[in-house]
Design a protein around this nucleic acid. Structure first.
Lengths: 140, 140
DNA sequence: CCTTGAACCTGTAGTTACTACAGACCCTAT
DNA sequence: ATAGGGTCTGTAGTAACTACAGGTTCAAGG
């Protein structure tokens, strides 16, 4: 099969797209349903036909989800990206807000880690009626 | 305003408990329904009566949820805390497992923070056509 | 006291972001 | 040409809440 066809127009099915992008088969259909992915072409029999390039947009969504962006955040991010207008300021604000939330979570988790480590170390592991873990969990 | 008889254990209503702990009114009922919060006392008319001490347990659950613990994880954490019969060894194992989960979450979030910080810094916030946030998400 | 209106009661349905069917149909390789 | 896998649709389930409807109770103001 010639390379020129591969790179520009090799059609792939839904399962193949999902596999390449690294998500569940049904997630593709779901994203189409909620309008994050455009409805693709169909075969005569009704099967979806994707282009290789379609996985780019899907990966964008999946990566955004992994980074903790919500669906609506991604929708606006995609709208901004699709618009190709000068919107870096808006995107910066969205990202900055998200970054703030992430940092708060890290702070909380570190505090919890400290607590758990501490009480874990104090616990001998023997059959002790009064375990320091129990008290420590409620200390904060 | 709620009951104001100054004793050592001021009773509070569901709404007040939710407000103090910082969650939705219905979340309290939900946690009771799934057994994370014990059924409280009731007035003659059927209204729930909480003690101020009850917000401690609720806050523990809420913080755990914010930190990404699932309900079942929290259930075992609470069982652990409630336990008066388990040996210290069993408690140690549970604590260690949770500590592992916490550390994994911290690692993941730090990586996410790094990514977001990086792409955020590259973004001037001005009127730039090519936004690094979008590029980072689009990247293959 | 009695009225009023906010808060509470129950059960059920909706939400988010998927994931898992069921039953029918399509597509391709042998 | 047929076997079998993949895909189609719609619907239902999941987690962890959140919102609502329709009714009851509580506590404060008159």
């Amino acid at each position: 099969m010639p390379i020129s066809f591969m790179t520009t127009s090799t059609p792939i099915a839904r399962g193949e797209l999902a596999k390449r992008a690294g998500c569940h088969l049904e997630t593709v259909r779901y994203y189409e349903k909620i309008g994050l992915l455009p409805p693709p072409a169909r075969t005569a029999g009704g099967h979806r036909i994707y282009k290789i390039g379609d996985q780019r947009r899907l990966r964008f969504i999946l990566r955004g989800r992994e980074l903790g962006f919500g669906i609506e955040e991604l929708r606006s991010l995609l709208t901004l990206a699709d618009s190709k207008t000068q919107t870096c300021g808006e995107i910066y604000d969205l990202t900055a807000a998200h970054l703030g939330a992430v940092r708060r979570k890290i702070t909380d988790l570190k505090r919890l880690e400290r607590t758990l480590t501490q009480i874990s170390n104090e616990c001998s592991g023997g059959a002790v009626p009064e375990c320091p873990v129990i008290d420590a969990l409620w200390a904060d």
